[in-house]
Amino acid sequence: MAANNQPESGGEQMSQQTLLRVIAKMTIPFILTFGCYVILHGELGPGGGFQGGVIVAAAFILYGLVFGADELRRRIPTSIIDACMALGALLYAGVGLACVLRGGTFLDYGMLKPDHAGDGEALGMSLVEYGVGLTVASVMVTIYLMISERRATLRKGEVS
């Protein structure tokens, strides 16, 4: 890998490549859109929260690879990513709790719209998928940031 040959400044070098920067900037919106589509369309077609979440995360990771992990960390602070991780899982659990509050048991989606058979299930499942998508995306970005951070500290250790 190129990063191994020049470990000192792998990230910075990549951000100086005009072609990479332009293409990354052009493709990231499309990747994000496609990821959202996979999440939103998950209940009807192939895909869903997990797959879509990973695709969304891929857009952020591409940004991190090209412009450097520090730049990514500056754009989205880690505390916000941490909160998003919890927010996704909370959306999932919250849907379950909403069913309890509407007089059903936990995760009894039918109770969300008791008048229309099937609507409640569809709504509950979609919301759960959005929650999964958000959590998966933020966890993937966190893993990427963690690994890049570890590398940076190791490199410092090697030099000193």
């Binding site: 505390s79 941490d82 909160a83 919890a86 899982a89 909370l90 659990a93 709790l97």
Partner: peptide
Amino acid sequence: LLPLFGGLLAMFTG
């Protein structure tokens, strides 16, 4: 559910 929600919400104190 109490510790589950509690744990997820505790994250926001960050």
